[in-house]
Amino acid sequence: MPGGWAETDSNGSLVPTPELRQLFEYYLSALGEETLPQLVARIEQALARLQEPARSEALATLENYLDYKLALGELEASYGYAATLDAHQIQQRMAEIRALRRNWMDAPTAEAFFASDEAIDQFQVEQLRIRTDQSLSEMEREQALTRAEEALPPAVREARRETRKFTDYQQARTELANDPQALSAWRKERFGEEAARQLEEEEARQRAWEVKWQAYSAELAELERLGIAGPEREAAIDALREDYFEGAEKLRAEALDSLR
């Protein structure tokens, strides 16, 4: 369950935060497993820890958020299907959704709940506009993309940079697959000594797992070909897992077997 959502000011009033929206979505993501009234009751139970007036304000915020979600679904349904949209059309739809949010929620709540999403959406529209602008040279395009990224909130910008590190790493692993020393040096330069060491150890564990998993899978296939059924089959598979795995690895093997 998300934490940090029960924030109040010196008067005991609710302070809207991104974490409060995360709390709502934590429960609402289970829609289908439970009914909406059941999930709303769970959220209300969580909000009961707040003192007044924050509790009533949080309940009102929840009601407004649910009404917004319903209105958003109707708005998106009205758009119909469009194979491709240009930057201007996407911008128009974003403006409508932004207005809808502020129609159902006050400005501080809308900002707290959606500022990050809206910044990312705007960045992606700007990316599309820049990439499709035929008047830009390659250098101008790269410079414009860099400026657009710099306009993102610091936390979002940092998250993108961290993600890009690992995207670059996957490429380096492919390019340096036959040169372990060069790959090790690349890790240290990009991630630092300690993080590089942890990454190398994790990859060694993953390689060891893959070897065991392949050997286990081969024996399991042979076992299945014997045509054993019922409790005897389950006991044989469990014994095979015991031979190859222990602890969390066995649980992982059971989960993967259930997906076969």
Rank of each mutant, 00 (worst) to 15 (best):
D121Y: 07
A119K: 08
R101C: 03
I120V: 13
A83S: 11
M94D: 13
L75V: 02
E76G: 02
I97H: 01
E74Y: 04
A83N: 06
I120H: 11
Q89K: 06
N103M: 03
Y81Q: 07
I97M: 11
E111R: 14
A82H: 15
A82M: 04
A83T: 12
A95T: 02
Y79S: 02
H88E: 14
A110E: 10
A82T: 08
A110H: 05
W104C: 01
I120N: 08
Q122S: 12
A95Y: 00
G80D: 04
E76T: 09
A99S: 14
A115K: 13
D86N: 14
R102W: 10
A87D: 13
A110C: 09
E118M: 06
H88A: 15
S116D: 13
R102G: 06
E76V: 06
N103P: 00
Q89T: 06
I97R: 09
S78N: 09
N103E: 10
P108R: 15
D106W: 04
L75Y: 00
A77I: 02
I97V: 15
A77H: 10
D121V: 04
A95W: 00
E96D: 12
E74S: 11
R102F: 09
A112L: 08
W104H: 13
M94S: 13
D86M: 04
P108K: 15
R93P: 00
F114N: 05
F114S: 04
F114M: 09
Q92E: 12
T84E: 14
Y81W: 10
M94F: 09
I120L: 15
G80V: 03
A112V: 05
T109W: 03
F114Y: 15
H88K: 12
